[in-house]
Amino acid sequence: MTSAVSLQKVSRHFGLVRAMDEVDLDVAPGEFFAMLGPSGSGKTTCLRLIAGFEQPTSGRIQIFGDAVEGIPPYRRNVNTVFQDYALFPHMNVRDNVAFSLMLKKLPKVLRIKAAEEALELVRLGGYGDRRPGQLSGGQRQRVALARAIVNKPKVLLLDEPLGALDLKLRESMQEELKALQKTLGITFIFVTHDQGEALSMADRVAVFNEGRVQQIGTPEEIYKRPQSRFVADFVGSSNVLDPEFVYWIVGEKRWASLRPEAIHVMAAGQSASRMTGTIISKSYLGPVIRLMIDLNGTKLHASVPSNDAVPAEGEKVTLGFAKDALHLMEATS
């Protein structure tokens, strides 16, 4: 089966800056694919290359098997939801949504019908006559979405689509986007710097750093089996353990990651474990309590259910965790 989007050794250099460096990527048709990374990691550049706003310095990009080098954005059957929505302020909502149909010279009646349907789909039926300036941030976001899907593109690109919304709205939009993608069956590729968003929404995630793809996998793989220190550190809040420490525990000189929730914290002396440390700080996060523990100079985060009895700051505790919770990564570098 051909990939929806396929990148082979794609690089994009701006002078000496390597925004993207030899990236390989395959997105399956109908997939909800996330590109995750800190700002400047190359994820947005990657999106812009697929949309056609920029051209690669080297490498090949294919969309559903067709090479798109030299094809301008207006000839790619790919649409984008922009981070700042980029709605046209001089048109009402309906004309915004019907813009691409107008360019295709679709008869006016069909144009309006299609636009209304798309607005209905993002639950903005009846807003057609308003101007973008009269809408709230969340509504504008939906208009941008309707405008991008009215054409039924082969691939929908979303650039930090929820970045400008507040927390509550973001959560409900996450659900909606997922449902929308199921309804339409279009391949979604979205860019985010929020690991929670990426993990909860995507079928697969590509983690970007410094212009390179660090790891591609399902959210579970990324979360539980990070392949590098960067992924372990960036995705969630794993403890990244240095090779010396890991050697002391398992006798192998490799970096390892350890999830905070995998650590059992017991009052000192309750276990035979030789890992005894001191609680440095303690913060209450609702369902869990987050502890920072000093273990012979190594600082570890642990999170324990908040209904457990938790020792106070400064107290000595003994730590324990299952051997397989310790995920070994690359060797010393």
Binding site: I63, F64, G65, D66, V68, G70, I71, P72, Y74, R75, R76, N77, V78, L106, L110, K113, A114, E117, A118, V150, N151, K152, K154, V155
Partner: peptide, 23 residues
């Protein structure tokens, strides 16, 4: 949206010389 036929990933160039110039 039903009015649109299923299209490929790349749309044909439109508008002859104007389209070519734009490209």
């Amino acid at each position: 949206m039903t009015a649109l036929a299923e299209a490929g990933a790349i749309l044909p160039s439109r508008g002859g010389i104007v389209g070519a110039l734009s490209d």
